[in-house]
């Protein structure tokens, strides 16, 4: 196994982001990339017998080959680009391979992964023309007790939902995730935007007083208390609510759940984003995942802000059709 730590974290993040159905083609794609990296390095090792031009041509052909295979596997790849662009990819891969023959396979694998998959899945797309600066929701954080949750006045809210309290064996992991949380997300009062333009991610606590204390503390010293007084009741309630909306929580967690507040009292809030942090063990990984979470919140600003919401429209139509379909069809004489 010659993955670097960074590749591994990237792969874990991709696994958490992709829909379950996409994971099988993704593993096949990773296998293809791994084999291509080994193949390229084998070619480069024989470079004494070949000119640089020949070598460049061969690397280019291999990159083109893996790009086509990824497309066949149905994996969205930034390799599906113009020939000019992928010539650039081949040149970079060749340069990487030539510069470090000893760890060639790992470096070429990293480069191909970055160029062909990660950039396609994890990059932030440029803002669309319809999404003006005023239509951006900013991520923030808040500790909240049972009576302070869900937080009011925010565009939307989320929760860091663990499935259980920390035990002496996994306390370090809980603290690492808490450190990532406070290091990546700004406290809501430090965000330069009104509350209605913020999507706040809540770390629940056992009591409102504890939450108030944590909100006043300096971020370097609060995670021990935040883990010890974690509000498991609220987290489990949210996990159950999300399960009722059809989401399956199979990993050990925690899960980041984002809710879009319902406009009426008799309708439940809608679960709109989920990120699985089951594979996170260190603060670094936690920071990466919370960074990804922040970016996803900003990319999906349309979900939180009032106005036309495609997802809500879809839900409305589906609920209406499923609720009245049977009755309406029988009224006009069509049997199901």
């Amino acid at each position: 196994m010659w993955f670097s730590g960074a590749s591994l974290v990237t792969l874990l993040s991709l696994g958490a982001l992709l829909p379950a159905a996409a994971q099988t083609p993704l593993s096949a794609a990773l296998k293809e990339i791994r084999e291509t990296a080994a193949d390229i390095c084998a070619t480069v090792e024989q470079k004494g017998q070949k000119s640089n031009l020949q070598l460049s041509g061969e690397v280019q052909a291999k990159v083109a080959g893996v790009s086509a295979k990824l497309a066949d596997l149905g994996v969205k790849s930034s390799g599906e680009i113009s020939s000019q662009e992928y010539q650039g990819v081949s040149q970079e891969v060749l340069a990487t391979a030539l510069s470090d023959i000893r760890t060639c396979r790992q470096h070429v694998f990293d480069k191909l992964l970055d160029k062909m998959i990660v950039s396609a899945y994890a990059s932030v797309p440029p803002p669309s023309t319809s999404q003006s600066a005023s239509r951006v929701v900013l991520p923030s954080r808040l500790f909240a007790g049972p009576h302070q949750y869900p937080p009011q006045q925010f565009a939307a809210y989320g929760i860091v939902a663990f499935k259980s309290h920390a035990t002496p064996g996994d306390k370090a992991r809980y603290q690492a995730i808490c450190n990532g949380y406070v290091a990546t997300l700004l406290f809501y009062r430090d965000v330069k935007a009104a509350l209605k333009e913020q999507m706040v991610t809540v770390w629940p606590t056992e009591s409102d007083g504890e939450a108030d204390n944590l909100n006043k503390m300096y971020r370097d010293s609060l995670c021990s208390d935040a883990v010890n007084h974690y509000g498991l009741g609220q987290a489990l309630e949210d996990i159950n609510k999300a399960t009722r909306q059809g989401y399956k929580f199979e990993g050990q967690g925690p899960f980041l759940l984002a809710w879009s507040p319902s406009e009426s009292m008799n309708k439940p809030d809608a679960l709109v984003l989920v990120l699985d942090l089951s594979n996170v063990t260190t603060s670094e990984e936690a920071k990466r995942m919370f960074d990804l979470w922040s970016r996803r919140i900003q990319q999906n600003s349309d979900l939180w802000l009032p106005g036309f919401n495609k997802l809500a429209l879809k839900d409305e139509i589906r609920q209406w059709a499923d609720k009245f379909g049977s009755k309406a069809l029988s009224l006009i004489g069509i049997k199901e």
Partner: peptide
């Protein structure tokens, strides 16, 4: 849609 009737009515 989750039901046949839902599809039908649409």
């Amino acid at each position: 849609t989750t039901t046949n009737a839902g599809t039908g009515i649409l």
